[in-house]
Computed example of a mutant assay.
Amino acid sequence: MLFAIICKDKPDHLQVRLDTRPTHVDYLNGLNAAGTLKFAGPFLGEDGKPLGSLVVVEAADRAAAEALAAADPYADAGLFASVEILPWNWVFNAPEGK
């Protein structure tokens, strides 16, 4: 099952995001190599700077998706003000064999 992990950064935490980005990218690259990551990227503010994240993963259940979200270095660094995890159904423009 697919899960959308919707994260909103704490105000004034851009430097935390920038400092933690290399380990966050390594983490997502590992999920990608395992076939768990479907897509990901930052939400951007009006100024073009990141202010949150959208990560879509395939997981057996909500508990597994929660564990993936908790293991993200951004979460460990205390970047996020909120994290919402929702089951998600990829209907339009889904790659074959999703």
Results as ranks from 00 to 15, higher is better:
M1T: 05
F3Y: 15
A4R: 07
I5L: 13
C7E: 15
C7M: 13
K8M: 12
D9R: 04
P11G: 13
D12F: 14
H13D: 08
L14M: 13
V16E: 06
R17I: 08
R17L: 12
L18Y: 09
L18A: 12
D19K: 13
D19I: 10
T20Y: 07
R21Y: 08
R21E: 04
R21I: 07
P22T: 05
P22S: 03
T23K: 14
T23S: 14
H24T: 06
H24D: 05
V25R: 11
D26R: 05
Y27Q: 00
Y27D: 01
L28F: 03
N29P: 00
N32I: 02
N32A: 09
A33T: 05
A34R: 10
A34C: 00
G35R: 05
G35P: 05
T36S: 01
T36W: 03
F39N: 08
A40K: 05
A40R: 02
P42V: 08
F43Q: 13
L44M: 14
G45A: 15
E46P: 11
E46A: 15
E46V: 14
D47W: 10
G48P: 08
K49M: 14
K49V: 06
P50H: 06
L51A: 12
L51R: 15
L51Q: 15
L51S: 10
S53R: 04
L54D: 10
V55F: 06
V56Q: 03
V56S: 08
V57G: 03
E58L: 00
A59N: 03
D61L: 01
D61I: 09
R62P: 00
A63K: 04
A64V: 04
A64Q: 06
E66D: 09
E66V: 01
A67Q: 06
A67H: 02
L68H: 00
L68T: 06
L68I: 15
L68Y: 03
A69D: 02
A70G: 01
A71S: 12
A71M: 03
D72G: 11
Y74M: 14
D76P: 00
A77S: 14
A77G: 10
A77N: 12
G78P: 13
G78F: 09
L79H: 10
F80E: 09
V83W: 04
V83K: 10
V83Y: 02
E84C: 04
I85M: 07
L86C: 11
P87F: 02
P87S: 00
P87Y: 02
W88M: 09
V91R: 06
V91M: 02
F92D: 00
F92Q: 03
N93Y: 01
N93G: 11
N93F: 11
P95M: 07
P95H: 06
P95F: 07
P95E: 07
